[in-house]
Design a protein around this nucleic acid. Structure first.
Lengths: 355, 355
DNA sequence: CTGAAAGCGCTAACAG
DNA sequence: CTGTTAGCGCTTTCAG
């Protein structure tokens, strides 16, 4: 005879943690089995759609379960199957707080959809600099099967280290030469090139660049900018480069500071639409008209870009494909397949700000 | 003698699901115990900081574990503890896709922070109309301890039903009279009132309202708008109400359609900053100057509001407090405490668009 | 203070 | 086709 149950569930749990019970005990597989007059195995098989169970039995069980509002406990199932159906999406730095950039939200949305299609869940995390080591912990503790990382920033080496440690990741960002991790990103160099060439074709000659060139993505956009200039036989003027931290709140101060230097310029290529729209405001305040006096091109094609006045010429990144690609590369990493990189095409969207 | 192990872990798992193993077997508590020369119980206690274990032993074990990169499997721990350390955050409708409204992102950010502070994880989900029933499934399957719902839209009755079914939820949105669920929201009525009164004080008399009045939050903002008008002895003119779906992509068409009706107006109160900024574009295209000919007030105080030209007068919602409040109310719901409602104050931010 | 043992809720051999 | 049985990795009595 087995000894008596060792732990009696506490009547009231004073811990701050969540009690799933909420009063009446939660139904479980054994209950369904008893009610259906079969074994738990049969219920398990029926609910997971095993072909071993004849359809009539399966239907009976399925209906019984759903009428009782029963759901398989995924935690227990995963433990037994040694499997996780969750992917971590991590935002580096404090980007989720400060960059209220709509572009980020659309990437997140498409990742959520792509995971959903595969029946996986999305665990969202913001990761601060001082907690880097917790990234691998998410995988090591079996919380998630892998990580999708948004915004590589200065974490490049750390991301490489994660790969060496066997942590499956996929990164949205720029594809750096010595990256060991799979990357999905727009063709930033080409985007920068297209934007700049477009301005040149409109007859602009003194084109300023606004963006944080130490940031990998903006750096590549700047490289494309330089390529277009060189191609046109124009020597880049360092005075026309205004670098600042991506997603900086003080974006406007930086803009004003630069404009106050009274540089000669007839166009600006901004490495994000949010920056470009802020520039519109600053230029307009100073009586500089867009596009007559200053041609302006942004980056990302956020929803607002089409609606501001003048409507903003910009580089579109196909976010729809981004989520799917990130999830795909992550799964390949989980399965130890060779690393791949996906570069999404950049597309110039011509609007009024650069006529 | 026990029979031989029933399941030999498959050498290669053909299932599409994630295999956490990745080559070498993952370390587990028994391994640490063996290496430390103690039992698994002791390791468990040491790692959870139990006072039963003397500090020296505890340190030895902790260091051994971290040097081997071992992390407690949260799934297994939760199963045993009958506990979940995860909260679901669900976006209703397809809002995450279409409303690239920065305001939503900032709420999400503060919720993430607040959960993090409590050591909980955030499972992000987008819920379509036709999958409503899956909301309770998230809790019933033990995936999450409760749900934070963003954007109540037309789901009001469904949210009430969740409460009746014993699903712990907390909702960001408007506080409706017959709501059974805990709500955190801005004081939308007051916000609408403040915005409108401000415009009236600037001498505006024919103030249009742009927003979807069938949406609970916008509806309350409209109510505040009406209150301010009545207080000023002005009869609301239905021709000055332009209703449209919140977060609609065709926002600009709606705006243009209304402007083409050539209504007489000298101000517009828009129920979101994104709408207001779009309006700026449309007005500017028609040669209507803001604020000289048209005073404009938005809602939300998104980052861009301060940077557009003219800078946008708006109603600020204290998003910082929103996340914390949502988490707090959800925990109260989980603990079956009485339902509460938190109304965050609305604050008028005067800028140039309404001088 | 520590270990043995039981079992959280489920799935998957294995043997009918 | 179905039930029995063992055990996923951990925590927690209970008995030293």
């Amino acid at each position: 005879m087995p000894p008596k149950t060792p732990d009696t569930p506490a009547a009231d749990n004073p811990s701050p943690a969540a009690r799933p019970e909420r009063g009446r005990k939660r139904m479980q597989m054994a209950d369904i089995a008893r009610l259906a007059g079969v074994s738990a195995s049969t219920v398990s098989r029926a609910l997971s759609g095993s072909p071993l169970i004849p359809e009539t039995t399966r239907n009976r069980i399925t209906e019984l379960a759903s009428s009782l509002n029963y759901r398989v406990n995924v935690g227990a199932a995963n433990l037994r199957k040694r499997d996780v159906q969750t992917v971590g999406v991590v935002f580096l730095g404090d980007s989720m707080q400060t960059v209220s950039d709509p572009f980020i939200l659309s990437i997140l949305g498409t990742v959520a959809d792509a995971l959903d299609e595969r029946g996986m869940s999305l665990l969202l995390t913001r990761m601060h600099e001082d907690r880097r080591h917790l990234m691998s912990a998410m995988v090591e503790s079996g919380q998630v099967a892998g990580l999708i990382v948004i915004g590589q920033l200065t974490w490049h080496q750390h991301l490489n280290q994660l790969v060496r440690d066997g942590v499956p990741i996929a990164v949205w960002g720029a594809c750096l030469d010595d990256a060991l991790y799979p990357v999905v990103g727009g063709d930033n160099e080409q985007g920068g090139y297209l934007a700049t060439r477009h301005l040149l074709r409109q007859g602009r000659r003194r084109i300023a660049f606004f963006g944080d060139t130490s940031h990998p993505e903006a750096g590549l956009r700047h490289a494309g900018y330089l390529r277009a200039l060189r191609e046109a036989g124009i020597e880049p003027d360092p005075a026309l480069l205004q670098s600042f931290l991506f997603g900086d709140r003080r974006i406007r101060e930086v803009i004003d500071g630069w404009l106050d230097q009274k540089q000669q310029f007839d166009a600006i290529f901004a490495s994000s639409d949010v920056t470009a729209i802020s520039l519109m405001g600053a230029l307009s305040e100073r009586g500089l008209s867009v596009p007559e006096q200053v041609g302006l091109v942004g980056y990302d094609d956020i929803a607002l870009a089409a609606h501001v006045h003048p409507s903003l010429t910009t580089i579109r990144q196909p976010t729809g494909q981004a989520g799917r690609a990130l999830v795909e590369l992550l799964f390949e990493a989980i399965q130890d397949k060779p690393r791949r990189t996906v570069m999404l095409p950049a597309e110039l969207i011509e609007r009024d700000s650069s006529r």
